[in-house]
């Protein structure tokens, strides 16, 4: 039986300051995950060599892998930390902020770019208003539903973006998660009305074509969202859209 949990954490005091590493050691307990260990650590943040340091800043909320707050790089791979069980991890457990996103402090990052992406692709249904119009949306077959439901579970954790070699400060690629939302919205019976507009938005620079089909995104997504299927389907939709633009009417 293990006696200790060893952590190696990349820390950073602020967005502009250089990162540094610290190692910690906590007594082993069963049923722990990375968030629960960080919670124990913040009660007594002492490094392995006995220095009292500031508690590690990080983000968490639901603790059941549905809010997307707690994503970070764990042993090199981006994933939600609340569902990363200690017993399954190789030690020392190396924690780094979620790659590609600007660090706020320690393991806390700023994912505003995801939100901007969603705004950019108009990831919503244009409804007249939130009043009751005494009618729901048109019917949706169970088959269509189950295809769409997969995409509706995206919790904007950003893991897919962090793992995408095309996404990062070096490019203006919007990233896989917002693209998958275009797939979702375009399939909705009324969301379809704005399909052309959404497609045009992802046909611009930084859009769909900046995906290089590395497919890391789909491998790391904790919610198993079929991102590459969405990318393929959007490929088809944009192909047809451009043909329509070039050769159809208007």
């Amino acid at each position: 039986m293990k006696e200790w949990i060893h952590l190696r954490i990349r820390r950073q005091d602020g967005p502009e300051t250089p990162p540094y590493w610290q190692t910690f050691r906590l007594p082993y307990a069963p049923d722990q995950n990375v968030v629960s260990v960080l919670m124990c650590l913040r009660e007594n943040p002492m490094t392995t060599d006995g220095r009292q340091v500031e508690p590690v800043a990080w983000d968490h909320n639901c603790m059941e892998e549905v809010c997307g707050s707690c994503a970070m790089s764990i042993n090199g791979v981006p994933r939600p930390s609340c569902s990363a069980l200690i017993d399954d991890l190789e030690q020392p457990i190396v924690l780094e902020p979620l790659p590609k996103f600007p660090v706020v402090r320690d393991l806390l990052v700023d994912r505003a770019r995801m939100d901007a992406g969603l705004r950019r692709v108009k990831a919503w249904i244009e409804i007249d208003g939130i009043w009751d119009i005494h009618e729901g949306a048109p019917r949706i077959s169970p088959a269509e539903w189950s295809a769409s439901y997969l995409y509706s579970r995206c919790m904007s954790c950003g893991c897919c973006m962090a793992a995408c070699p095309q996404f990062g400060p070096q490019s203006d690629f919007i990233g896989p998660a917002p693209l998958a939302q275009v797939r979702l919205m375009n399939a909705h019976p009324t969301g379809r009305y704005d399909k052309t507009e959404r497609l045009h938005r992802i046909m611009a620079s930084g859009g769909l074509s900046d995906c290089g089909n590395a497919q890391n995104c789909v491998r790391v997504c904790p919610k198993e969202i079929p991102l590459t299927t969405a990318i393929g389907e959007l490929g088809r939709q944009t192909t047809l859209q451009s043909l329509k633009d070039l050769f159809g009417q208007g």
Binding site: I125, I127, D132, E135, A137, R139, S152, H188
Partner: peptide, 24 residues
């Protein structure tokens, strides 16, 4: 007001589970 709220949610695109007929 519950049914009206559900209808509005549905218009917003909420992926409610469906029956074989395509309704909620």
């Amino acid at each position: 007001h519950a049914p009206g709220l559900i209808r509005t949610f549905e218009r917003m695109g909420v992926t409610f589970s469906r029956t074989s007929e395509g309704i909620l």
